[in-house]
Design a protein around this nucleic acid. Structure first.
Lengths: 106, 106
DNA sequence: TGACCGTATGTCACATTTGACATATACTGC
DNA sequence: GCAGTATATGTCAAATGTGACATACGGTCA
């Protein structure tokens, strides 16, 4: 629940870490962050595989380059909804999403 | 992108329908709605299997009974983030989430 | 060097989501 | 009938997410 803590961690560069329970995040928080990171990585892969720039994807999504950058870095300010919506816009199916989630599942 | 439309559909009782492309929702919108409904159903199943009332789950989540009701009915006002967070709070794993998503995938 | 391209980061007004509350509906057992 | 319990629905202030903008960083090519 403590979203402020997550932002603090992000601010301190935890993005480089392994997102495990190296600090006292609750189990739910940890898993949610792992999910976000998995989706973020999937998004970057889908985009680059298609040879698109962040700006091109942003146009496709009616969004902005900066938001795409934040999505791909799993910034705390982006929701899972937005990540999923973006992946779907790139042509991923619901099953594809399920498999993506399954890859990083413990 | 047209979230207003989704709310209109919800207001008209589309919850009873099959959530397919029976109207001109974009493919992404349809899939997102299906995902929400899948998660919502999973949440209700997890809660009832554990013999919890909506109020009890709300307490567990630091939320309210009315929001739990909205979650379980896949109300447009609830995010996928919140649904996932709630499922995780009930003990579902990331793999469990992946499998849940896979069940309703086409 | 400097111009260009792609990506990253910080900020902010505006939009959406959230918990809380009131209230309604439905189903018990009495 | 009336209480009591569980769930549903509508509303709203506060919290969070969003697109847009400016700007910084890093690479490449001339």
């Amino acid at each position: 629940m403590n979203k402020t803590r997550i932002k603090q961690l992000k601010a301190a560069g935890w993005k480089l870490g392994n997102t495990s329970d190296f600090l006292n995040l609750s189990a739910e928080e940890s898993i949610l962050i792992e999910i976000k990171i998995t989706l973020a990585a999937g998004l970057r892969k889908e985009r680059t595989d298609k040879g698109l720039t962040q700006q091109a994807l942003a146009d496709l999504l009616d969004s902005s380059q900066s938001r795409v950058a934040k999505m791909e870095s799993a910034d705390p300010s982006v929701s899972i909804d937005l990540l999923m919506r973006s992946l779907l816009a790139l042509g991923i199916t619901q099953m594809g999403l399920a498999k993506l989630l399954a890859t990083k599942a413990a």
